[in-house]
Design a protein around this nucleic acid. Structure first.
Lengths: 219, 219
DNA sequence: AAGCGCTTCAAACGATCGTTTGATGACGCT
DNA sequence: AGCGTCATCAAACGATCGTTTGAAGCGCTT
């Protein structure tokens, strides 16, 4: 599967967390099905039977990895994104977009969740229900509240819904199509330094779109 | 893998096209790796060795399926979407969005391409290079030409690029997140009847966003 | 009818994967 | 010291998959 990993030094770190770390990397890279227990255990430097012992089976490890990555992402980029108390709706939209992009595109542990969620959306497992209830739905409702305030009291729930989905779609594009952008349009792949510029674009683009739906607009 | 398909009647249809049809459905449903040759051949009602005989191996069948679906999609929704000759940029944007959504969300043969491309973007195979060169790049350049006209001569290439990506992202959202929408927000899953309304929303939203970037706007 | 490609077939091979087994220490308690 | 529990280990089991094999069926030309 993966190249012969030089067997990380068998430190005295707990086998459980070693499996969670290695599992997150391998599941994010290959997906649930293509990932092999042997590869994960090899990277973790533990015996193949450890998965059965600690997590019952491969699916149990997968669920635990998602829980692990989920909490790690929330610890790193908490829902209250260091936003001022009385921030305007525009500022809150920008903070939402920026933190969303950070969770989606940054390296490290949270990137596991972004990759795994992208896979879950195309090839769902039982874990998707949990992801929706504990991650996607609260986040999306936070966004719809902002959009509703920007769209004004006359906006229908359908318009608020579609506008919010437009915001999410613009952000997810850079995660879901990352490999295609890298191959076909490498000059426009967002870097860590260019992430703020990208967040500003999406915020500005979306603000205009949201306000256009407020009065009905043409087209 | 899949339920015991009642072995389609062994008509005298060519084994090749039977394999292409069954392969398209199975690859789109399970992905390249998870799809099994036995499943495909069972659905096609042909012998397991037919894949080796007609397409050399599983990867050869996969490439042929993509070619097949690609041509089928272009036949059904050709690049010139029945648009009037002197159509305005706004009308051309609407036609682009609508035909894009049709290719992404409609049932039938073209749906294979949408699902397979969604998988390719997350877990690329060698076929992705071909998809980019023959499908994604020409389509995207058609879009950037429209956006450039709408954004005006003062818009930078970066603005045109990002705005075009915003349009594509809004459309792809409903393909990539279809399973999540179906589970978490079933009331907003676009139907065939609601597709025109969705296309109008994305067009109106994007027109405002494109024009907002024309003068710089605030963030 | 005989011979010859082209295509299809059942059956098996070799490899890989998830999982299980039974033994082996490591450590704490009586 | 003796015992039991927890954790780990190498090795193998059973299942599945992609691929291969060699023969048989079919249509066509001569």
């Amino acid at each position: 599967m993966t190249l012969p990993t030089p067997q990380p030094p068998a430190t005295d770190a707990d086998t459980r967390v070693r499996l969670l770390d290695a599992g997150g990397a391998v599941f994010a890279e290959h997906g649930f099905r293509a990932a092999t227990v042997r590869d994960i255990c090899s990277r973790a430097g533990v015996n193949g039977a450890a998965v059965h012992y600690h997590f019952r089976d491969k699916a149990g490890l997968y669920r635990a990895v998602i829980e692990h990555a989920f909490h790690a992402a929330l610890d790193r980029y908490p829902p209250d994104l260091g936003l001022a108390a009385g921030a305007s709706a525009e500022e809150r939209l920008h903070a939402f977009v920026r933190s969303f992009l950070l969770r989606l595109l940054s390296d490290g542990v949270p990137a596991w969740l972004g990759k795994i969620m992208a896979r879950e959306m195309i090839e769902p497992t039982d874990a998707l229900e949990h992801i929706i209830a504990h991650s996607a739905r609260p986040l999306f409702e936070r966004l719809t509240a902002i959009v509703r305030e920007l769209a004004g009291p006359d906006a229908s729930v359908e318009h608020v819904m579609r506008a919010s989905q437009s915001v999410v779609g613009q952000c997810l594009f850079y995660r879901h199509c990352r490999e295609m952008i890298r191959r076909g349009w490498p000059e426009s792949e967002p870097t860590v330094e260019g992430l703020d510029e990208l967040a500003r674009h999406i915020t500005r683009f979306s603000l205009a779109g949201i306000r256009a739906t407020r009065v009905g607009g043409r087209a």
